[in-house]
Amino acid sequence: MHDEPILKIQRLEKVFGRGCSHCQHEDTRQLEKNFCPYCGTVYACRNISFELFPGEILGIVGESGSGKSTLMQCLYFDETATGGEMFINHEDFKGKNIFALSNQQKRNVRNHILGMVYQNPTKGLKMNFSSIGNIAEKLIAAGNRHVGEMERVGMELLDKVHIPLFRMKEEPKRFSGGMQQRVQIAKALSNYPPILFLDEVTTGLDLSVQASVLDLIKTIQREMGISMIVVSHDLAVIRMLADRTMVMLNGEVIEAGLTDQVLEDPQDAYTQQLVYSLL
């Protein structure tokens, strides 16, 4: 087992707003949930640190507005983190704080090392492009120029996510939600990223499609050894997928541990409420 984390996050912070004298100091700040009542600044992510190991699935649970998606967006550079450090164990970026790199270098990281699957497929896919074209877009971004090769990779991936190949030239807007989600996963996988972020990927899917997406995620982990961060408010999904889990509330990680320990012996009052709410 590898003992070097592939991704390391230290004290990540994301603040929307300027802050004021009431909320700028961490020790004295008094927030309502994650919100400063004096100036309206939102502290979406506060002091978040964790490590992700090769081949591991890390789960993140928490209620709506707890900062899960903001965290993912910071990690994928859709949002700029306002504080903290990100390290990736990759020969080109060893010892470098990824957050401090130029936008061009961040794009480079995103195109070669990271993959993202959004809750809403319209964010991850160009709905009017063909499905295979969507995959090609990511491949081109990652530096591919050979059309035949890109088509081969695209077909292989669409097949892997069980999209019938005779529909590969169709636009995702003509697909069902579950199919769109699977095209999105194929697109995210196309540059063989060692790290994949999955943001509420099964939310809103019916049980049968959910089962096939879960199975797909497990297969990808097993066959490709990809490390993943899975965000979900569905504890059953997290239990199925994640080895370790973090619980977020009001922008902070309030509890973290082995998934079964967090779910069966939660220590924090909020996590207990969450777990006892399970049907």
Binding site: M1, E56, A211, L214, D215, M240, R244, G257, L258
Partner: peptide, 26 residues
């Protein structure tokens, strides 16, 4: 550490309960 426990669960310590909680459709 959690990593050590994950390793041990994988290779050295097994746990069997009366419930089967596994991936659906497998």
């Amino acid at each position: 550490s959690e990593r050590e426990i994950i390793y041990l669960r994988k290779y050295e310590i097994g746990y069997v309960s009366q419930f089967l909680n596994v991936m659906p459709r497998t």
